Computed example of a mutant assay.
Amino acid sequence: MRERDFWQLIDEVFGPAYGRALAREQMLPALDGRTPAVALDDGDEPRDVWHALCDALDVPDTERWGKDKHRQAPPPRR
């Protein structure tokens, strides 16, 4: 997953306004208390950041990949 894919999924799954707010403000234990935006800036893999956010918010696997184009081949979890 590329960082631009992360931001596209943020917009599709959470909506642009709420999703961007989550990325800037939601501190996640799985990211050592950092926000998703800070984790990405620090060089974390976008896929790992995405899974950490979805796990923290209990987003079901069936809803994590936005529109159908993302559901075809979701990246494997680590």
Rank of each mutant, 00 (worst) to 15 (best):
residue 39 A to P: 03
residue 47 R to G: 02
residue 7 W to M: 09
residue 54 C to L: 09
residue 39 A to E: 10
residue 29 P to W: 01
residue 8 Q to H: 12
residue 26 Q to N: 13
residue 37 A to R: 07
residue 10 I to V: 14
residue 19 G to M: 10
residue 74 P to I: 07
residue 19 G to I: 11
residue 7 W to H: 11
residue 2 R to A: 15
residue 28 L to Q: 00
residue 4 R to I: 15
residue 11 D to K: 08
residue 54 C to T: 15
residue 65 W to V: 05
residue 44 D to P: 00
residue 43 G to T: 12
residue 31 L to T: 00
residue 31 L to H: 02
residue 56 A to Y: 05
residue 63 E to Q: 14
residue 20 R to T: 11
residue 69 K to G: 03
residue 8 Q to N: 11
residue 73 A to F: 05
residue 26 Q to L: 15
residue 51 H to P: 01
residue 78 R to M: 10
residue 12 E to N: 03
residue 56 A to S: 13
residue 42 D to Y: 04
residue 61 D to F: 04
residue 47 R to T: 14
residue 14 F to W: 08
residue 33 G to D: 15
residue 68 D to T: 13
residue 75 P to I: 10
residue 66 G to C: 09
residue 56 A to F: 02
residue 23 A to R: 04
residue 40 L to C: 05
residue 73 A to K: 11
residue 23 A to Q: 04
residue 29 P to L: 13
residue 62 T to H: 07
residue 1 M to K: 03
residue 64 R to I: 11
residue 33 G to Q: 05
residue 75 P to L: 13
residue 41 D to A: 13
residue 71 R to F: 07
residue 77 R to P: 04
residue 74 P to H: 05
residue 28 L to A: 03
residue 46 P to A: 12
residue 48 D to R: 09
residue 67 K to W: 12
residue 15 G to C: 11
residue 18 Y to A: 15
residue 5 D to K: 02
residue 52 A to W: 00
residue 23 A to N: 05
residue 5 D to L: 13
residue 23 A to H: 02
residue 55 D to K: 01
residue 6 F to V: 14
residue 51 H to A: 08
residue 42 D to S: 12
residue 34 R to D: 14
residue 69 K to C: 08
residue 65 W to C: 06
residue 28 L to K: 01
residue 27 M to E: 15
residue 50 W to I: 05
residue 37 A to K: 06
residue 68 D to R: 12
residue 64 R to F: 04
residue 22 L to M: 14
residue 54 C to F: 06
residue 12 E to K: 02
residue 77 R to I: 09
residue 14 F to G: 04
residue 16 P to V: 08
residue 10 I to S: 02
residue 50 W to A: 03
residue 67 K to V: 13
residue 64 R to M: 13
residue 18 Y to K: 15
residue 47 R to Q: 14
residue 14 F to I: 13
residue 47 R to N: 14
residue 39 A to L: 08
residue 10 I to K: 00
